[in-house]
Amino acid sequence: MADLSFTDQERQAVYRAIAQRRDMRRFVPGSTVSPEVLARLLAAAHAAPSVGLMQPWRFVRITDASLRQQIRALVDQERVRTARALGHREQEFLALKVEGIADCAELFVVALREGRQEHIFGRRTLPQMDLASVSCAIQNLWLAARAEGLGMGWVSLFEPRPLAQLLQMPDGAEPVAILCLGPVPAFPSRPALEIDEWAYRKPLSEFVSENTWTQP
Rank of each mutant, 00 (worst) to 15 (best):
E99L: 02
G100S: 13
I101D: 09
A102W: 14
D103T: 04
D103W: 09
C104M: 08
C104L: 08
C104P: 15
E106V: 15
L107E: 15
F108A: 07
F108V: 01
F108E: 11
F108D: 07
V109H: 11
V110E: 13
E114D: 15
G115W: 01
G115S: 06
G115D: 04
R116V: 12
R116S: 03
Q117M: 00
Q117D: 09
Q117F: 00
E118G: 14
H119A: 13
H119I: 12
I120Y: 14
I120W: 14
F121N: 05
F121H: 11
F121C: 00
F121S: 04
R124M: 05
L126A: 09
P127N: 08
Q128R: 10
Q128E: 15
Q128I: 02
D130C: 06
D130G: 14
L131R: 05
A132T: 09
A132V: 10
S133I: 03
V134W: 11
S135R: 10
S135C: 12
C136D: 02
A137D: 05
I138R: 12
Q139T: 12
N140V: 06
N140D: 10
N140Y: 08
L141Q: 01
L141D: 08
A144N: 08
A145N: 10
A145M: 06
A145E: 01
R146N: 07
R146I: 00
E148T: 00
E148A: 11
E148Q: 14
E148R: 08
G149I: 05
L150Y: 05
L150V: 00
G151W: 02
